[in-house]
Design a protein around this nucleic acid. Structure first.
Length: 591
DNA sequence: GTAGGGTTAG
């Protein structure tokens, strides 16, 4: 039996070692401490669990640690306690956030039968589930929370909420949230971010108001979520109001919050304001620079984007693959082939490996510039198989710039990779219609029917008085649909009177011209613009966000509306911004 | 006996 004096000495040594580990700067120093522990006779043959846990914890969690070293030590423990399991689970999540390993470790822990999970374990493993959107595993952990009586831990609750939200299981996330009896700031923020991430802006904003009604004040993290929700929905008025809220309440505008504001202003069409927030930042990281560059690029402001890129290099902040995507897409939107090529080679110089998206940008750049053959051979030389986006870009290139002999082979690749994507069939159908290959047009329609493929419905958002209205193509559900239809008729008349004939080739259906024209009028962007014209008075600007590419007839009509109604209209489509003023669009019809 | 939830660009 150990004497009390021995125990005291032992504890004193352990605490001494623990404090050394706490101050440990790197693995070299840690190894020395480890050696000292191993040489201490009072702890031999096996250092006591407490000290070993501390060592494992450092190796697994410290930024200067070494997860492999942690693994080796951990594997030598016959019966690890819950603390060391937790350190390993958390450590693996930190090192590689897309890994399944933490979940595998958790399963091993349960199988080992020696350690019972605690609230830390579940919180860590839930984080790992969130990272990889593992819904099944998240659900299992949920049942374990009940089993081990940990369902009341606020950490486990937010962990569960988050893992459901990351899997876009908002109903389950909400179920967990509603079940929390004493909701703190973190729980509210987590729920809000869940809604925000999938673009449910009204729900996010509703909760944002509710949390304040029950006396919880949002902090900078909450603000980032709601502001990014506005960015997604293009809700400028709400976004502006949230910005003034930040100022009014004295919420700390940190790097992340500033970046979300830049993104929000850029995505809501107010690029000048985005620039102002950017200019006022004290410190800017890669993400802040990239957000601003991508903002300029989507607005077609290529000079600004490229100048900013050089400034970024001057200020010694390293660009990453997103920064280059911004630069390359700026070039693509403006047909700057030489600059695009320059960026492409400087990526290699900086050791940034081009990803699929970068190849996509280059193919887009070459196709838009009319260099179809070059784009095609560029794709042929890719070091990995091209994805559907790249084949589709090439196909659009064929449609505009010849290369008809390659159409069939490209179509084959595309349909092989994405046999169920309606967009491909619509595109092919349009190309065949353009070439008057009516048999192939009807073949496409038949294939879609056989496979049960539904076209992704076009959907547009417009914010009026702090509420985001959603319109789906041929939508009947809006409460004011009657007035909207009347307005659409009036618009049609005025547009026709100005000399525009509808470009009915944008309509796939095999129907007569009048029906095609009607179908065009039902496009979601038209419904949203008509609603904007009803609900606001000139000269108020109209801002619309669309989930798909702008339809070419709607683009033409919007130009005319901007002139006829004296309105500035900004439409953000899936790819970029279109700013219509006095009958012209900022994209110069190059999109 | 040690530790921890929510946030930004494509």
């Amino acid at each position: 039996m150990k004497s009390n004096a021995f125990l005291t000495n032992n504890y004193a040594f352990e605490y001494h070692i623990a404090s050394l580990i706490q101050k440990c700067p790197n693995m070299k120093a840690l190894r020395q401490i480890h050696g000292r522990v191993l040489r201490n006779p009072t702890l031999s043959p096996q250092p006591c669990t407490f000290v070993l846990c501390k060592i494992i914890s450092f190796c697994a969690l410290s930024p200067n640690g070494d997860i492999h070293y942690a693994h080796r030590l951990f594997d030598d423990i016959p019966q690890p306690n819950v603390f060391s399991w937790n350190s390993m689970i958390r450590g693996c999540t930190q090192i590689q956030n897309q890994s399944r390993e933490p979940i595998a470790l958790y399963k091993k822990m349960l199988c080992s039968g020696f350690a019972k999970p605690n609230s830390f374990t579940l919180a860590f493993v839930l984080k790992a589930c969130s990272n990889i959107s593992a819904l099944c595993e998240g659900r299992q952990v949920h049942s374990h929370a009940y089993k081990y009586g940990l369902d009341f831990s606020p950490f486990v609750q937010t962990g569960l909420l988050n893992s459901y939200a990351k899997c876009e299981e908002l109903a389950s996330a909400r179920f967990v949230f509603d079940d929390i009896s004493d909701k703190n700031l973190i729980a509210w923020s987590a729920m809000i971010s869940g809604y925000a991430r999938i673009g449910m802006v009204n729900e996010a904003l509703g909760l944002f108001r509710e949390m304040q009604e029950v006396g919880i004040s949002p902090d900078e993290v909450t603000m980032v979520s709601v502001i990014s929700a506005c960015a997604k929905a293009g809700a400028l008025d709400l976004g502006r109001w949230l910005h003034s809220f930040v100022d009014r309440k004295g919420i700390r505008t940190d790097l992340v919050l500033s970046t979300s504001l830049i993104d929000m202003y850029a995505k809501c069409g107010l690029i000048e304001k985005a620039k102002k927030v950017f200019d006022e930042m004290g410190i800017r990281d890669t993400m802040a620079w990239s957000t601003m560059i991508v903002g300029f690029a989507t607005h077609g402001l290529v000079d600004e984007a490229l100048k900013l890129f050089s400034r970024m290099l001057d200020s010694k902040v390293k660009p990453n693959n997103v920064t280059f995507l911004g630069a390359l897409s700026a070039c693509a939107h403006s047909g700057l082939v030489r600059d695009g090529r320059r960026f492409w080679s400087s990526m290699h110089d900086l050791g940034i490996e081009p990803l699929m998206e970068h190849y996509g940008c280059m193919v887009d750049l070459l196709c838009r510039a009319g260099l179809f053959e070059e784009a095609y051979s560029f794709v042929k030389r890719m070091p990995f198989p091209p994805n559907a986006v790249i084949w589709r870009t090439l196909l659009v290139g064929c449609k505009k710039n010849g290369g008809q002999d390659k159409e069939e082979i490209i179509a084959e690749h595309l349909l092989q990779l994405e046999p169920l994507n309606a967009e491909n069939y619509v595109l092919l159908s349009n190309i065949y219609a353009l070439r008057s290959h009516w048999d192939k047009v009807s073949d496409m329609r038949k294939k879609m029917k056989e496979k049960g493929i539904k076209v992704t419905p076009g959907c547009s958002y417009i914010e009026i008085d702090g509420f985001v209205h959603k319109f789906i193509v041929s939508d009947e559900s809006h409460p004011e649909i009657k007035q909207i239809r009347a307005e659409l008729k009036a618009i049609s008349k005025r547009v026709r009177f100005s000399g525009h004939l509808p470009w009915t080739s944008s309509v796939l259906h095999d129907v007569d011209e009048e029906e095609k024209e009607n179908a065009l009028c039902e496009h979601s962007e038209r419904l949203a613009i008509a609603f904007g014209l009803i609900k606001t008075k000139a000269p108020a600007m109209i801002r619309v966000v669309k989930n798909l590419r702008f339809c070419s007839d709607c683009h033409e009509v919007t130009k005319i509306i901007s002139q006829e109604y004296g309105r500035e209209i900004i439409v953000r489509d899936r790819v970029r911004f279109h700013r219509f003023v006095g009958g012209t669009c900022s994209c110069n019809d190059f999109w």
